[in-house]
Amino acid sequence: MRIFADNLAEQLNKQLHPIYLLLGNEPLLIEESRSAIYQSAHMEGFTEKQRFSLEKNAHWEDIYNSVQAMSLFSSKKIIELELPSSGVNNSITKELAALFPLLHPDIILVVIGSKITKAQENAKWFKQLSATACRVNCLTPDITRLPQFIRARCKLRNLTPDDEALQMLSQWYEGNLLALNQSLEKLTLLYPDGELNLVRLEKALSRSNHYTIYHWCDALLAGKMKRSQRILRQLKAEGIEPVIITRALQKELTQLFAMATNLKLHNLHQIFEQHRIWQSKRPLYTAALGRLSTTKIQHLLQLLCKIEITTKTQYEQSSWPLLQQLGIEACMPQVKF
């Protein structure tokens, strides 16, 4: 089964799974999920914990011994395997495939890693794991899920934000859940009545959002002009080099152009499958393809080329106004006559 990290507590109250797969890039969600699993498992008699990193030179013999060590006096245990940040290679997949059949009811296996690719999902070890595992999404919530995520967090602390406060919290803490968690704790102490509005937030908190280049690219695909300009201003303030931004956007626009060209021959589902577009990204590309013609995308690529040339050759001229222009044009709907 698949659940979001914020639904894990509810799931643990119903059932304790033999395997948990914590996947994502958000440290707060991974740590909270790990703690929730340990707490529930401890109540069921799983009092021993062992952690193993599967980075290079992992001691697989120790892992196998830990799984197979059983006696009348041994306690139930939780075994945690941390996948390498570089991904799962063939050597690790072979070991994992051999390990899973050895698991027994006195062991709960917790596997922690970053985002899994489609190819990895089809691998033997992952299919074996998924058959009995609870897969917990620990990815940082995107802007569409963030307000719902924050509202649920507030509810746990008896905080009641109005709609404007919720929107402000979403803007201020996007991409920085650790800061959000700390701020909600602070608000709980400052306002015992739990009522949150713009005046109280501005008085108590400071902006702590963290945007990446990919947030900007996603905003352009979605056609969200105000959001894209806000992200671009913060990227500039953080000293992100324009050439890094243009490289990321070049990949998106090039792929978008290829997809738009194929629209006459294939439907959207076929195009998404052909280009291996993640389900979470498909609404963004759908919006962009419905808004931008191949001619407009070509124009954006030409403007992007101009920005890159300016960045690399015209050192006395700033590229940021051109990036701002590109962002505006990419978000504007196509004018039809």
Rank of each mutant, 00 (worst) to 15 (best):
C331G: 15
L166D: 01
H104C: 06
I3Q: 01
Y285G: 04
F46T: 01
K118R: 06
S130M: 11
S75V: 00
S318D: 10
E10I: 12
W320C: 04
L103D: 09
N137G: 02
K296P: 02
L265G: 00
W278Q: 11
P141V: 03
K186P: 00
R247N: 11
I116E: 05
K226I: 14
L23I: 03
K49T: 15
L156D: 05
R207V: 00
L268C: 03
L263V: 08
S85Q: 14
I213F: 00
I309E: 14
W125R: 11
Q250N: 15
K127D: 15
N158P: 07
C217K: 11
V136E: 04
L220F: 14
G194E: 09
A41N: 04
L221W: 09
E185F: 04
Q15I: 15
Y285K: 05
L263K: 04
Q128F: 12
A165D: 01
L146Y: 02
L178S: 12
N197I: 01
P141M: 00
L156S: 07
N122I: 14
E273R: 00
Q68G: 03
T117C: 03
T286R: 09
Y211W: 08
L268P: 05
V111S: 11
Q270Y: 02
K264L: 08
L196V: 00
S130L: 08
K296I: 14
N176C: 05
